[in-house]
Measured scan of single mutants.
Amino acid sequence: CHSECLGNCSQPDDPTKCVACRNFYLDGRCVETCPPPYYHFQDWRCVNFSFCQDLHHKCKNSRRQGCHQYVIHNNKCIPECPSGYTMNSSNLLCTPCLGPCPKVCHLLEGEKTIDSVTSAQELRGCTVINGSLIINIRGGNNLAAELEANLGLIEEISGYLKIRRSYALVSLSFFRKLRLIRGETLEIGNYSFYALDNQNLRQLWDWSKHNLTITQGKLFFHYNPKLCLSEIHKMEEVSGTKGRQERNDIALKTNGDQASCENELLKFSYIRTSFDKILLRWEPYWPPDFRDLLGFMLFYKEAPYQNVTEFDGQDACGSNSWTVVDIDPPLRSNDPKSQNHPGWLMRGLKPWTQYAIFVKTLVTFSDERRTYGAKSDIIYVQTDATNPSVPLDPISVSNSSSQIILKWKPPSDPNGNITHYLVFWERQAEDSELFELDYCLKGLKLPSRTWSPPFESEDSQKHNQSEYEDSAGECCSCPKTDSQILKELEESSFRKTFEDYLHNVVFVPRKT
């Protein structure tokens, strides 16, 4: 048989008469490798580009789960590009990614509803959504962080984005990388972005840091009482949809009607710091009717980097990364020049730590249904340095008659930039024990000054392991946590139920 035959053949030295091919099969003959313009397919066939392209389009058009959109890589027609490569849609070739590779997620039936953290986790790592997304989240724990972890990498949506009755959302900033909504599939009414009845939605994105392009379709905003109209108009300008909307697409009466839409800028007039305090004062603000001013709200939190936005980490279910302080308005003076500047002394802060701070007014709604208010920009203030805590785990070892090696770990709280350490030492008198000992005694162990690591005695271990207080009263049991108490109650309830079950099964009433 021919060298490319495997198993047997019907005619000697003829690659077209093989029972099976050793390498690849091409047009009725066995070959060692697939010549151009053919590609290896499933490690035994040679196919042309049209064959591989037909497989790709067949799966793409069917949208069946589990099928493969075949691509070409290293002269092979394979189910998908290997790690580190992405497909070129024009020629199906796998090309190296520039940075992290995109991950295209194809949605069944063309859309997916995100109504819980669990459903959001199914899209973790996706960068391109081939379909439409509907966000409908009523509640949950730590929602802002969970949504950002699972949806934060999405850069492109081919269909539309719909935010509907998501009472738990305060902001859409968890879509931190969303840059493009194509609108290839539109919501009824030709809408590519749809926001309806979101009672706590206050911000779409921080438009000073976020760009969003909507290729096709219109915007729809109705019944978002805490979303200011200025935020919607800003989205029109940034996304390129200005002029597409009709009169009733953006409701003037049901958007922002319960919001404090600040239209003035508060400026800080005085800032002073110490290692654990920050004193702030800002310019006074009074609405047209000074009785509408209820006070100020001061927001602050630790910020290692200057990239904080107002609604980071917030949701309507209680999660809030900001510390909020309510401040009463100052006494009002008739003389504008003698107006008191409101302020606040922030206490209990960490030394040498940068804080993000902003302040906003708290006002009631005027009778004319106009909203007044003022808010400052987010500023960054760093507390002063102070003395560091003591170095940890000092170790001293003498390696000769004239040297001592000293080692330690950095302090747990540096409280500033540590530039150097101060080492103090003092000579001590020799131990009298060394002169009084009889060095001729056998088995004498000389006193040693070398360091030995501390260890816990058996008594201390027994005390720590004991669940009861000892007789001397030195140790006591740790208080039980809520989960331990709940577990004990469940076990007790189970024992009672099981005992009742045994009584009912074992003891049967005697027939009379």
Rank of each mutant, 00 (worst) to 15 (best):
L107N: 12
E109W: 15
E109V: 15
G110Y: 04
D115Y: 13
S119D: 14
G125K: 08
C126E: 00
T127Q: 06
V128T: 11
N130A: 04
G131E: 01
S132D: 07
L133W: 00
L133N: 00
I137F: 15
G140D: 13
N141M: 10
N142L: 08
L143N: 07
L147T: 06
N150W: 12
L151S: 02
L151W: 01
E155S: 04
E155V: 15
E156W: 15
I157Y: 00
S158V: 12
Y160C: 13
A168G: 06
A168V: 11
L169K: 01
V170G: 14
F175P: 00
I181S: 01
I181K: 00
G189K: 04
A195Q: 06
A195T: 04
Q199F: 07
L201Y: 00
R202I: 00
Q203F: 03
L204D: 00
W205G: 11
D206H: 05
W207P: 05
I214L: 13
T215V: 09
T215N: 15
K218A: 05
P225S: 05
K226F: 09
H233L: 04
K234I: 07
S239Q: 10
T241M: 14
E246I: 04
K253C: 02
S260E: 10
C261I: 02
N263D: 03
F268I: 08
T273G: 08
I278T: 08
P284S: 10
P287K: 07
P287A: 03
P288Q: 06
P288V: 06
D289K: 01
R291M: 02
G295T: 05
L298C: 09
Y300S: 12
E302L: 05
Q306K: 15
V308N: 15
D312G: 14
D315Y: 11
W322C: 01
V324E: 15
D326H: 03
D328S: 04
P330M: 05
S333A: 06
N334Q: 14
N334V: 06
S338Y: 08
G343A: 09
W344Q: 13
L345Y: 13
L345V: 15
R347Q: 10
K350H: 12
W352K: 04
W352A: 06
Q354K: 03
I357G: 04
V359W: 00
T361A: 06
T364L: 03
E368W: 09
E368F: 14
R369E: 04
A374S: 04
A374R: 02
S376G: 07
S376W: 01
S376D: 00
I379Q: 09
Y380T: 14
T383I: 00
S389H: 13
S389A: 13
P394E: 04
P394C: 13
V397F: 15
N399I: 05
S401G: 07
I404C: 15
K407A: 00
